[in-house]
Design a protein around this nucleic acid. Structure first.
Lengths: 140, 140
DNA sequence: CCCCTGTCGTTGAAAGATCCGACGATGGTA
DNA sequence: TACCATCGTCGGATCTTTCAACGACAGGGG
């Protein structure tokens, strides 16, 4: 437990450092990945999905837009909304961040063999699913 | 990986909430547990062991001292030092925090049977040991 | 049509945590 | 004695997160 929390923090710190070296924010991966899955989203949808403050999201999106990784367009159907979409550069950045993350994963999982890794993945997945349904129940 | 980081954050958030309800800081457990292991420590030793800022530690210890959980005494051998020790109330508080943590652990591990839990523990332990030696190497 | 209510993205203020550079007191050393 | 390092403490600077506004806009009821 402490172990899970400790390792989680440790991994998160590793990711934070690596992302900083890559000139990226920790939120960036979530946003880019989210946009990569479903074509376009509103800022509210992104904030809700990633559970970050809408006011906070503005600055992060400003950065991403300045770097040319995303685009913001007014929704003609509802001119209050901004539809956020991924640019080609954004897709490339996403791939890079994913490879950075993969590298950290390999590093962290290094002491385990293939079997151990798949076992760990399966166990964590069970915990993750339970945790997800758990919070859903709480929210409902 | 994301999974490990995500679960770690989730568990940490659960612990934070539970600790807040118990009127405790997240650092408190670390400090109390550290004092429980080795009789008494200086503030510098505590800060180094827990990897928190020495200036930050002052306020946390002030709180703990106000609650009567720890005591600060000048070291007669080196009057710059403050020797921090656990009181009886501190020991009781530590036990309570540990039980709170145990409860969270049970909750999180609920979807796994005894065998799955011990397997997970073993796998995480391997990762933790590797991570520990890794950072030691970096520090050295 | 005009109001009223709510949501959108945005801004700025407030609060908390962390980091960092001082300071006086003290210890060790030359 | 003089000099330098370390102790705990304090205060400021910075960053993050939270929250309450604001103008712009949409939808509905009168």
């Amino acid at each position: 437990m402490f172990l899970l929390g400790y390792l989680g923090s440790s991994v998160k710190a590793l990711a934070f450092e690596a992302f900083e070296r890559a000139g990226a924010n920790l939120h960036d991966l979530g946003i880019l990945a989210l946009l990569d899955e479903g074509a376009t989203d509103t800022q509210a949808a992104i904030a809700d999905a990633l559970e970050i403050d809408r006011g906070q999201l503005v600055g992060v999106l400003d950065d991403l837009e300045d770097q040319g990784l995303i685009e913001r367009h007014r929704d003609p159907k509802d001119r209050r909304r901004h539809m956020v979409s991924l640019t080609a550069a954004g897709r490339r950045r996403l791939e890079k961040l994913r490879s950075v993350l993969q590298q950290i994963e390999d590093e962290v999982l290094e002491p385990l063999d293939a079997k151990g890794r798949s076992t760990l993945r399966s166990l964590l997945l069970q915990l993750g699913q339970h945790e997800a349904t758990d919070t859903t129940v709480r929210a409902g």
